[in-house]
Design a protein around this nucleic acid. Structure first.
Lengths: 216, 216
DNA sequence: CTATGTAGATAGCAGAGGCTATGCAACCAG
DNA sequence: CTGGTTGCATAGCCTCTGCTATCTACATAG
């Protein structure tokens, strides 16, 4: 397969990181052993320690090469529709209400990492940089929308980006816990609140569509 | 101390659950061993297994008796001020920007539990019930405000409660990761966005107050 | 073709953590 | 007073995990 040693090493590194991302997202970082990762990558734990030195080292390497953050996915969703309302609905659908399996895993991994960051300064430092980049990117997007008159300047782009990121994260948490309690109209309306859009489902409906949680 | 066996047992149970709550919140559930909990409670692991059968059993028992959820804390904050703007600011300050150590621990535990719920149906079931109660409580609060004319009926109470809970959770995550990037004015303005309040800091200021993340 | 460096396999250690089996003192019924 | 029960302690088993030390096969240089 890989011919030179360099190629072989690079290939192994990719396999290991890819397997780690997959398994960490699916089962949680602590629940996945180094041996699990190695086996999934078709290698042994010796390869992991040769490449990264420790499990933590592997995690940090993974973070460094990790591009598919929440905001990246949001941005991708935004490209798919033209009107603002449609874009919000696309985000609501593809990130929160009907995400693909891969997206679900990504979001879960992002949550676990941000929780870990609260107790692990190394993880926090890496995540902080990514978060700042993501925020800036989204703020520029809102600024452009305002400049183009696509949305009303209800607040400055920085605040909008902060609110929007927080909302998506928070809504995702709620929906994952109790999907039956939140349909796509509610989610879309919630996102629209940020931009002063009137997307609420009819009042009568909205007061009654929420179901009590499914009893155990 | 405790005289009858019943009293003794009840006392031990409380000690164990209290110690577990404290330690789980501070270090994370997986990082805390059964022995740690027992020792902090002045007992041994034998007591834990007599009471709860397993570590998971202890966690579920803890959840069942757990009253101090995020929304409970928010509700408490709301009582402290009179005007809506002041209440939002109180929430921003006491939950997100300058929370007490105890509040910080509580919020962290709540995040860990909700993440765990994504992979553990037992935890999910318990949390789901609490979340529904919390949501209903907050929705009733917003409904009362609308009925009393305290806030404009910009959306139905259910949507408002959904948005507000999501926003607080999301903002807390962001602020914990990078406190320097989000001051209290931004947070308050973000919360106000939900209710169409104009609390934004001056535009010129808001475009510049965000700092780049502290390098490493 | 040989010498050497290197990617990664193999085997195993040390420690920890969940859990169990058993022991024992305090309590309680008769 | 006594025998049984209860609440918890003690000791230890067993598995798993992160990690290391050592070895092997291959690739590259000369």
């Amino acid at each position: 397969m890989a011919r030179t040693q360099q190629q072989r090493k690079a290939d192994t590194r990719e396999r290991l990181l890819s397997a780690a991302a997959q398994l960490f997202a699916e089962h949680g970082i602590d629940a996945v052993s180094v041996d699990h990762v190695a086996e999934a990558a078709g290698r042994t734990s010796g390869a992991v320690y040769d490449h990264f030195g420790s499990k933590q080292g592997m995690l940090l390497a993974l973070l460094d090469e990790w591009q598919q953050s929440l905001v990246t996915v949001i941005a991708a969703e935004f490209e798919l529709a033209s009107t603002v309302a449609e874009r919000l609905r696309a985000v609501a659908a593809n990130l929160i209400v009907h995400p693909s399996e891969e997206t679900r895993r990504l979001l879960l991994l992002e949550r676990e990492l941000s929780l870990r960051a609260a107790r692990d300064p190394e993880v926090a430092a890496t995540l902080r940089i990514r978060a700042a980049e993501a925020h800036a990117r989204m703020a520029r997007g809102f600024a452009a929308w305002i400049a183009d008159g696509i949305i009303e300047p209800v607040a400055d782009p920085d605040t909008l980006a902060t609110v929007f990121r927080a909302l998506v994260a928070g809504l995702e948490i709620q929906h994952r816990l109790d999907p039956a309690a939140m349909d796509i109209d509610t989610v879309t309306a919630a996102l629209g609140r940020v931009l002063d859009l009137e997307l609420s489902p009819s009042t009568h409906h909205s007061f009654t569509h929420r179901r009590t949680p499914t009893p155990t």
